[in-house]
Design a protein around this nucleic acid. Structure first.
Length: 552
DNA sequence: CTGGGGAAGGGGCCC
DNA sequence: GGGGCCCCTTCCCCA
């Protein structure tokens, strides 16, 4: 017995699920566009993806090899077995697809493209002859009559992927492998025995390296998995270092009790440590916090949903410049081009339930996406889009040049107060040499400012690299530190590696998990020395103390 | 309706 | 680059 069209129906269902983002567990980043898909489907279709998806939830593709529009076609092909929205007569279109298929080791698609090219080549009416391989548009020499050769860019891409994953390997070994690859692999082999390439890039070949910024966003959970691994209580204990007391200058410092290290819980030396029987999380919201990449999409259905409680939610700005025809299955980077003055609407996978109201801190007034006059998103060849301003450019070089102008604009002259708060002091000429308090500080060679120590100086000097050097590739929001930006991007993508083994709630930071675990343990290490009320969070104690400080 | 507590998110900063 | 911590903030619940 055999059910007719079983496989077809199955694929149809999967494609429908993809279009809705249902059960999608991986995001593929192509330039500024994000696509969601199912790991199983990708792994079943592509050796390249097969080697990556077990390790990564986020895969960044080499934009030299595949563009967003081409990858859309590739994804459609994977899920339907058809090529719908591309011009089969246009050799350039076919060869771009072939390049992508080769890169992604989609053997069937590559063969299809090659056949198509061959057919076009033999069709007298075809006016679009195979375009020569250009340096800017790396395409394998796909002439049908001869053996396909890997372009240098292609080899470089393979090499690059290997480098991304073989940090422990020696450079000599890598060089040797590349040499061996050059010697051993013909294009045909790459097509037909992709496992060979995959074996050279054992894992994470396309791991998102910070979406082009050299970052690894696919943070592992402590036990090594990014998806379901949980944190053992023992690991929590080890990592749960006691907080140093935070002393607000306006608050009585004696009111803040220093929590006892957890290791000492058996000896209740600190009366403020209140260990109670483990209790369930009062408000577990797995629906909101679940580690589900689909949440990224859910948060902004169609890219137009307002954050809950956003008074200015209609400020959302989007365009389709990168992927002009946005489909349901895509998590296009453009969808995140929100006006961050209504911050928090992007806050991870919150599902809009929290943080929806306008926030006043941080860079809340920074407008990230204001379409520029004269810029028509999605029109023409302006596929390279500056996320902060929405302007499109025909080439990455032009975009980069444009981005530089943003960076120059972002040097803020009014940083005096901030610098003082950060331990950065007035210029040397402003100091009194006779005052012992004005002993030579750590001087910034760029501006002469004096810092209290080497660390502060290092931090200050970074500001000369251009303030906020690290823009988020998804929303464009700039950050002063790469690590902060990386952390921010995790929240965009719902990457929450730290899971509570009690309730399954997940967090982007381990410290948050440690904090959260006190909900279950009942531990309230922060006691008000004025009234004795205990808190699980230090910040709540501080809020409480403010209440004491301003009786009303 | 209001205020306080609980729990959680984000960014900045330092090590 | 990541961890840890601080601060600000929001949202929900409840008295």
């Amino acid at each position: 017995m055999e059910q007719q069209n079983h496989s077809k129906q199955l694929l149809l269902q999967l494609n429908q699920q993809r279009s809705k983002g249902y059960l999608c567990d991986v995001i593929i980043v192509v330039e500024n566009a994000l696509f969601r898909a199912h790991k199983n489907v990708l792994a079943a279709s592509s050796v390249y993806f097969k080697s990556l998806v077990p390790h990564d939830n986020l895969i960044n593709l080499d934009t030299d090899m595949v563009s967003p529009s081409v990858f859309r076609q590739v994804l459609d092909f994977i899920y339907t077995g058809r090529l719908s929205s591309f011009d089969p007569v246009n050799d350039h279109s076919v060869s771009s697809l072939l390049t992508a298929a080769c890169y992604l080791q989609l053997t069937e698609l590559a063969a299809l493209c090659r056949r198509k090219l061959k057919r076009n080549d033999h069709t007298p009416s075809s006016s679009n002859k195979l375009t020569p391989v250009s340096s800017t548009s790396p395409t394998p020499n796909a002439h049908p009559s001869g053996p396909l050769r890997l372009s240098s860019t292609h080899l470089r891409a393979v090499h690059q992927n290997r480098n991304n994953h073989s940090g422990s390997r020696g450079a000599n070994q890598r060089a040797g492998q590349e040499e061996k690859l050059r010697e051993d692999l013909s294009e045909e082999e790459v097509f037909t025995s992709g496992t060979r390439c995959a074996s050279l890039s054992p894992s994470g070949g396309g791991r998102v390296n910070g979406l082009g910024l050299g970052l690894d966003l696919s943070k592992r959970s402590p036990s090594g998995s990014t998806t379901t691994d949980e944190v053992s209580p023992s690991s929590l204990t080890q990592s749960s270092s006691p907080h140093s007391s935070s002393h607000s200058p306006t608050l009585p410092t004696t009111a803040i009790a220093k929590p006892e290290p957890r290791e000492n819980q058996g000896q209740p030396a600190n009366p403020s440590t209140d260990t109670q029987p483990r209790t369930p999380c009062k408000r577990p919201r797995p629906h909101r916090e679940a580690f589900n990449l689909g949440a990224v999409r859910k948060e902004l259905p169609n890219g137009l949903a307002k954050g809950q409680g956003e008074p200015g939610g209609d400020k959302l700005v989007r365009d389709n410049s990168v992927t002009p025809k946005l489909e349901d299955g895509e998590v296009d980077g453009e969808e995140f081009g929100l006006d961050q003055s209504e911050d928090s609407s992007h806050s991870g996978s919150e599902g809009g339930g929290r943080g929806g109201k306008g926030r006043r801190n941080g860079n809340a007034n920074y407008i990230y996406r204001q379409p520029q006059p004269g810029f028509e998103p999605g029109v023409g060849d302006n596929l390279y889009v500056c996320i902060p301003c929405g302007k499109g450019f025909p080439s990455s070089e032009q975009l980069n040049a444009h981005v530089d102008t943003h960076a120059q604009d972002e040097v803020h002259p009014d940083d005096e107060e901030e610098d003082e708060e950060a331990g950065i002091y007035p210029k040397e000429e402003d100091l009194d040499p006779d005052d012992p308090a004005d002993e030579p500080q750590h001087l910034c060679t760029a501006c002469g400012k004096s810092c209290r120590d080497a660390a502060a100086l290092r931090q200050h000097e970074k500001s000369h690299w251009l303030n906020r050097t690290f823009p988020c590739n998804i929303c464009g929001k700039p950050f002063t530190q790469r690590g902060t930006m990386t952390r921010h991007m995790r929240s965009h993508l719902g990457l929450k590696p730290f899971a509570c083994e009690e309730c399954g709630m997940r967090f982007t930071r381990q410290y948050r998990l440690v904090e959260h675990m006190r909900v279950h343990s009942g531990e309230k290490p922060y006691a008000c020395q004025l009234c004795g009320v205990k808190f699980t969070q230090q910040r709540n104690l501080l809020s409480h103390l403010k209440m004491h400080a301003s009786p009303s």
